[in-house]
């Protein structure tokens, strides 16, 4: 238990916490219109206008904008679609590309000045994206193998003695229907939440230190420098998490398509 003495002039350092992720309603007292909701809408506008601008003047020799758009699309189609899913990949590229762009833009909001909030650090948004991927891979599996064979493939590994099924089948069912979607959405949420909290700690700490004594001011400047440096580190994490989410969606689709998983 560490408690800090608080005086009226110097209220002590208030560490950032989960309360910094709650935003007041923007208009009226409707709890449905807060900053993350506005940001989701903004991300849709940004992605749509970027892709429309990139594909409007299609040329054999691509311009700068078309080159950027094609780069992202090629990454998703080749390394996430073709290499993971296999021959039937083309059907799933639109889904994977939408998921990748949506998560990437919403993550990068975390380090854009003036916005500075990764939308995916609210658990509801990763869960919503996860539901698309979850429904898709189970639907694809049932469509390809039929309901009975799909469930049988999940529940019973071939080639083990019968009594062991009693122990392994619950684990398999839980993995396919609970743990996979849970870890898929929690990984993205936890990374974004922790990253934003890390930046807040350094920014708030720097602000507090600069308002204190002389030597502390130097440390405060150092703390702000750390916050700026960590922002670039966060950029790497944000791109990586968008990539991993899409990669895992592609892997689950590939697993549902494969014989016997």
């Amino acid at each position: 238990m560490i408690s800090q003495s608080a005086t009226p002039t110097n209220p002590g350092f208030v560490p950032p916490g989960a309360k910094d992720f709650q935003f007041p309603p923007i208009w009226g007292d409707s709890i449905y219109l807060t900053k993350p909701v506005i940001l989701i809408g903004l991300s849709v506008v940004i992605i749509s206008s970027f892709l429309l601008a990139a594909t409007r003047n299609k040329a054999v020799v691509p311009g700068r904008l078309q080159f950027a758009g094609e780069g992202v699309y090629t990454l998703v189609r080749n390394t996430l679609g073709r290499d993971v899913i296999g021959p039937e990949y083309l059907k799933f590229v639109p889904l994977l590309f939408s998921i990748f762009c949506f998560i990437l833009v919403n993550n990068i909001f975390g380090i854009v000045p003036l916005i500075q909030f990764p939308t995916m650090s609210h658990i509801g948004f990763p869960v919503a994206v996860m539901i698309f991927s979850y429904v898709t891979y189970h639907y694809i599996g049932v469509e390809k193998h039929g309901l009975v064979k799909y469930l049988k493939d999940i529940c019973f590994m071939p080639g083990i003695p019968k009594p062991v099924y009693l122990i392994l089948t619950p684990v398999e069912i839980l993995t396919y229907f609970v743990t996979r979607p849970l870890t898929l959405s929690l990984r993205l949420f936890a990374n974004m939440f922790a990253g934003h909290l890390l930046l807040l700690v350094f920014a708030f700490g720097g602000e507090y230190l600069i308002s204190s004594g002389l030597i502390m001011k130097v440390l405060g400047v150092f703390s702000f420098g750390m916050a700026v440096g960590l922002s670039f580190f966060e950029l790497g994490i944000q791109c990586l998490q968008a990539y991993i989410f899409t990669l895992l969606s592609a892997l689950y689709i590939a697993g549902a398509l494969a014989e016997g998983h």
Binding site: V178, T179, T183
Partner: peptide
Amino acid sequence: PGSPNEEGAFWSIIGYLVSGLL
């Protein structure tokens, strides 16, 4: 194609451990 490749295997390992413990 479709075989469990390495990245997938690592995440699946964590998934199995979590669900077994759970």
